[in-house]
Amino acid sequence: MEPKTDRQADLVAQARQLAALFAVRAAEHDRAGSFPHDHFEAARRAGYTAAAVPEAYGGGGYGLDDVALAQIELAKGDGSTALGLAMHLMMCGTEGQARQWPEAARQRIFRAAVQDGALLNNAAAEANLGSPQGGGRPETTATPNGPGRWRVSGRKTYTTAAPVLTHFITYVAVEDGSGQVGRIAIHRDLPGVRVEETWDALGMRASGSHDVCFEDVLVTDEDFLTRSDPERQRERPAAWFAILVGATSLGVASAARDYAVRFARERRPIGAPGPVATVPHVREQVGRMDAALMAATALLMQTSEAWERDPDARPRLGPQVAASKRLATNTAVEVVEVAMRIVGGVAMHRSEPLERYFRDVRSGLINPPIEARALETIASAALDDPE
């Protein structure tokens, strides 16, 4: 899908340049499970990490539709890096629109993102809690430690881009008798913050989605970003998260599609009357890939454009957001599998990127909303909401 505005075209062009750079070492980082620090530094230098920070705070002021289109391009170069950047952009874009944090904290963190290249992500999931979308109370705690002071202790899992994050937006149980939960901005340099390199996974191996441990970390009231009842965690559609995960999945799948098409055009077995691209079955499969990608991308972009076009309608977009993410991630898996069938045995080689794409697209399936929760959101709008 082509950009619709000059500003969108500029961001997409920047993403394409970064993707070409990321692609050079993507396989190396995947094989070693190493973290691509150089990729994030390049994104910082290009200003891409400030894209979703509102213009009022010195950022690019790009909307969800702009960033989603750019993320599709970025993920063609390296899915792991694109996922890490998606999490940071999601944090900036979500808060830029929702404005849930205290103004002083928002100014401080956004200024750091723009001027210093600060990177942030949620530190929310836990081994026993799973995703906070389930409404549970985290085991990570914030305990009073004197007037206006708190002590944070606990362990978080799946903290994508942990090696380069400057701010962990940490989901905690507030242990002051209120029964509330909260989110606290914890800087990585505070004593007691430790990243434990636990990430050794099937896909997105270079995403650095490690555990983060908080051992009696001292924070103040000023570090609290939100406090609420646990049920309120599920009130707002998490559009930036869901859409950017979907966009990243589609970008990886598009890279697989491009590889398979290139292979079909160039591969001509000995004795064959023409290249693989002339085989009717292969042509059918290419059509299947492109049709699926067109449909999933169209719904994803339609949803992100609706989100930007009418802020008042956002609370009603939950089912469409869920459907967009679900279709994007399922389509990505389907497309990569079709690409592997077209290419054949070569697709299994570690020296070629298809097997990495095959593994990477599976990560979208376990990012929220997962299949069952997405379908429940859609069904609830049909069966439970007033007609």
Rank of each mutant, 00 (worst) to 15 (best):
T160C: 05
R137Y: 11
R149I: 04
G154M: 04
T141Q: 09
A127S: 13
A162Q: 03
R155K: 12
T159D: 09
V172R: 04
K156Y: 12
H167R: 06
A162H: 04
G135V: 08
G154Q: 05
W150V: 09
L165F: 09
A125Y: 07
N145V: 05
T159E: 09
E139N: 11
T159N: 08
P132Y: 07
G135R: 02
G148M: 04
K156C: 10
V172A: 06
F168L: 04
Q133A: 15
V164I: 04
K156R: 11
A124T: 02
R137C: 06
A127Y: 12
G148V: 02
P138T: 01
I169L: 11
T143D: 15
G154L: 04
A161G: 12
A127H: 13
A123L: 07
N145M: 11
A125E: 15
L129V: 03
T140M: 08
V152K: 03
N128F: 07
N122P: 15
Q133Y: 15
W150C: 03
S153M: 02
V152W: 05
G154C: 06
N122D: 15
T160S: 08
T166N: 12
T159M: 03
G136Q: 01
A127E: 14
G130C: 02
N128Q: 13
T140E: 05
R155A: 00
A173C: 15
L129C: 05
E126R: 00
R137E: 10
A125M: 14
N122K: 07
T166L: 12
R137L: 13
R137D: 12
P144I: 01
T143Q: 15
N122M: 15
S131P: 13
E139S: 08
N145C: 14
R151W: 13
A173N: 14
R137I: 09
V164K: 03
A124K: 01
A173S: 12
G146E: 10
P132E: 02
S131L: 11
A124N: 08
F168V: 00
A173L: 13
A123F: 15
E126L: 02
R151F: 13
T166E: 12
G130K: 00
H167T: 09
A162N: 04
N128R: 09
A162L: 02
P147N: 05
A127L: 10
T157Y: 04
G146T: 02
G154P: 10
G134P: 07
A161M: 13
T170E: 06
R155F: 12
